[in-house]
Design a protein around this nucleic acid. Structure first.
Lengths: 236, 236
DNA sequence: TTCCCTTCTTGATAATCATCAATTGGATTT
DNA sequence: AAATCCAATTGATGATTATCAAGAAGGGAA
């Protein structure tokens, strides 16, 4: 956990350069720009349950998840936490903050599983941005997409009852769009899913129970099978 | 409602140039760029209750509200509508879509009151953007701010009970932050506010009733007076 | 003004969901 | 294997909120 020396940096880039390249934040960078950026990069290990940063701390860095899973949440006035986002590997978070100087993290970041992260300096990245207008356009597209994602979340939270929210959530996990009996794994613990949907774990459990009873889905642990796709869609 | 001729365009800019200049989307533009942009501008009048565009139509334009008020909403599966945003005068909407080619409007836009709008071509604005990198940075900052606003909305929707949501909403309307008995008007009909908070109008009415009974606020029509600021804040 | 229409309010009831409590299940550690 | 810990489930209960219904109030239009 610390700044990389020159030799390490070269090694670092050799190993992880391609990894980052897949991400849109870095795919448009020239080789030399990427090298420059990585000079200020840190590699962090965050143990399960450990905090990376707290809500209202000044945002000086953004992060890339190499492995593990991070939880971004807000603490509500009554002390409970509202999960805003679960960030899996190969994704960045907190990068949207760099465009406004001296802003605070609007969420706290905690490791759901032990995680490896890259940390990037906002200032360094912004310097790159000023030199490459094309990159700005890529980022604008990215933020715009995120904005629409949040719209969907707002919509989910406005759905009349919890069953609708759970069903809507399950639908988003169906990737194999052609299969008649889609199968997938829940990406995180049920407790966390319930948190994202703003319902209690007990309620989540009961809803799943009912869906199983009605033969719409099957669920064993984290393995989900959709048994009646139409019925599931009709809940919406 | 139509494309402006050359003379009209000059007149148009003379009159409305300053108006637009106040908005961050246009404040960073050079005079010549603004003129160019306005060549493709249309002036629209939308009657109360009329639609400007429907959800899932292709997004080719974004808009500036000169006067009136627009409602952006999504239609939920059960046919009810979820209000995403109420856009008052001197604000833009749907501009975040232009950064992704061929996207659809994720909401429908309807006039709450009779409204006057400017419409801007996404393509034209994007052309400007490619020529002025500084403008991109301004926009990035703007989108980033919006993203955090959505976060707050998500938080509000996650608040345990409706009273919290109403109180939180009222708090955001207090502008005169120093006054002991802040006064303000509700910006739109109560029915619409309830929609934004994802509660029923009846529930909203009852909560206000209780707050009045407890001497925390007073409300006559749309006029609101906060009588006990601490008590109001303590609901959170 | 009067009429009409929509919003707002208030009441009664039913549905939904959170909470509390206790148990089961699974995974990891010793 | 036993012990431990946390997640998940299930049941019972109470609080909250939606729904339905009916009346009051407000704002325009004729």
């Amino acid at each position: 956990m610390g700044m990389l020396k020159k030799e390490d940096a070269m090694q670092f880039q050799k190993i992880h350069g391609q990894l980052l390249r897949k991400h849109h934040l870095f795919s448009a960078l020239s080789d030399s720009d990427l090298t420059t950026l990585m000079r200020g990069t840190r590699v962090l290990s965050v143990g399960k349950g450990e905090f990376l940063f707290q809500q209202n701390e000044e945002a000086r860095h953004f992060y890339f998840v190499v492995s593990g899973c991070m939880k971004l949440f807000r603490t509500l006035p009554d002390g409970t936490e509202k999960i805003i986002e679960l960030v899996p590997s190969n994704q960045t978070f907190a990068e949207a903050l760099m465009f406004n100087a001296q802003t605070m993290y609007p969420v706290s970041a905690q490791a759901v599983d032990s995680s490896e992260l890259f940390s990037f300096s906002n200032i360094d990245y912004m310097a790159l941005l000023k030199r490459s207008p094309d990159l700005s356009l890529v980022l604008l597209g990215d933020l715009s997409r995120r904005l629409r994602m949040r719209l969907s979340e707002i919509e989910v939270l406005s759905l009349k009852n919890s069953t609708h929210r759970v069903v809507r959530y399950l639908m988003t996990l169906i990737v194999d769009s052609d299969s008649e009996y889609p199968q997938f794994d829940l990406p995180v613990a049920k407790r966390l899913i319930a948190g994202q949907l703003a319902i209690q774990p007990e309620t989540f459990s009961r809803i799943v129970h009912r869906l199983k009873e009605e033969g719409v889905i099957d669920m064993k642990g984290k393995e989900v099978t959709v048994l009646d796709r139409k019925a599931l869609a009709n809940y919406e």
